[in-house]
Design a protein around this nucleic acid. Structure first.
Lengths: 226, 226
DNA sequence: GCAAAAGTGTTGTGTCTACACCCATGT
DNA sequence: ACATGGGTGTAGACACAACACTTTTGC
């Protein structure tokens, strides 16, 4: 066993596709765990940061330009990998619905609630990524990372339903996000389809950088006062 | 430069001491950064997990039994350290107020709002640890990790004030934590001091394991319904 | 006119802060 | 009695879910 561990970075890349939250995974051709699916990633090179590393490895799978958000999840020592001693840092990456990145033949999108057999602890890592996404959808503007640049409220609703895994009321979605100043109307409207219906107003996220919009700041006095 | 990085673990150990939130730091005797203060920690050994590693290194500074909470913060590649290539994983550790761990001569507690010159990026790491603590005090029962086993509401209040850095109303603190089922009365009372005053009821945290007590779960329907 | 889809008005509920007031003790 | 510190009652602000209702379109 070498004196220093091999450090690798992996990513849970999530996107809402066909109204389901899906994760990008890659099928191992070689041992160990041949045939099983794993998260994309690879080893850390000298002189690069962890974020540079995961972006470099993902570039082989997805166009990095298409990642609308990337944040670190957790680092752990991988137990089972026999000869080499491995430390890996997991990231969460998000891709907005209007993009359909070209991916290599050995990779595939799988719904996070119907995963194939996974290698190592990747199942746990995916779950952690999904939990993080779900939590941040509630108290930040992270929706921008899943949604296209412009959308109607009901389009945004299907994204939230897929990501959160429960029903979401379009009425309340619109009101919450407008009240918090997360969405703004573009002024344009989407013309109705052949079935008719009132034309829908188009919205966009006011900013496309992560911001906390619901300070769960209990116990804080409201009038100034440090 | 070796082919693999050296992996080290460090910890932001926080405790409320003398009504201020303080962090345990250690003064470097050797270059690089001799004389500056750094976070305790050390290199990862083969066969141990990251959590085992940081607990082992901390054992030299603080009795590990006294850590009431330990969670991972962030991993990053340390830039400046000249010859060796370093990756380090930071943890947040908490010590309850009723303990006063014996610490070696080269370590000291420093208030997080009045820090001495720090080596590397340790200032940023400490800030991140404090932010995490402050956020979790709002929506979890993490107060158990700072508070002694039993306490009056006003004692708990001073802990929260020190940790959060802003005024906290004893009235509201009691009500919020009781409503959420975080605290429970022990049934005992604390006799008043020589100045008199009504005797205070004693409370304890109902559980001393981390639990989310305020689901910021906006947009979730209240009647069942997946 | 009628169906379809979007959007608004309104009500009820719960959680929170703030502040007035009451309670139990020592001197 | 009165000072000291602990605890409760209550009102107002706000955010939210739910649901009825109205608006705007196609056929």
């Amino acid at each position: 066993m070498s004196p220093h561990p091999v450090h690798s970075t992996v990513a849970v890349v999530l996107q809402v596709r066909e109204a389901r939250l899906q994760v990008l995974v890659w099928q191992r051709a070689k041992e160990p765990q041949s045939g099983r699916w794993t998260l994309p990633g690879g080893t850390l090179a000298a002189g690069e940061s962890l974020e540079q590393s995961i972006r470099r490895h993902l570039a082989a799978k997805v166009d990095v330009q298409e990642l609308s958000h990337l944040e670190q999840l957790e680092t752990r020592v991988d137990a089972a990998v026999a000869p080499s001693w491995q430390v890996s840092t997991a990231y969460l990456g998000l891709v907005p619905t209007h993009l359909d990145p070209a991916i290599p033949a050995d990779t595939r999108w799988h719904p996070v609630d119907a995963l194939p057999p996974l290698a190592f602890d990747d199942g746990v890592t995916i779950e952690r990524g999904r939990d993080r996404l779900q939590a941040k959808l509630s108290y930040t503007n992270l929706g921008f990372a899943l949604a296209p640049p412009e959308f109607t409220v009901s389009e945004l609703r299907t994204v939230y339903v897929a990501a959160l895994g429960h029903a979401v009321s379009a009425t309340n979605l619109q009101r919450v996000l407008l009240r918090r100043g997360v969405l703004e109307p573009t002024g344009e409207r989407r013309e109705p389809g052949p079935a008719g219906g009132r034309p829908a107003a188009l919205f966009r996220f006011r900013t496309r950088a992560l911001a906390i919009t619901d300070q769960f700041a209990v116990l804080r006095p409201q009038r100034a006062g440090e």
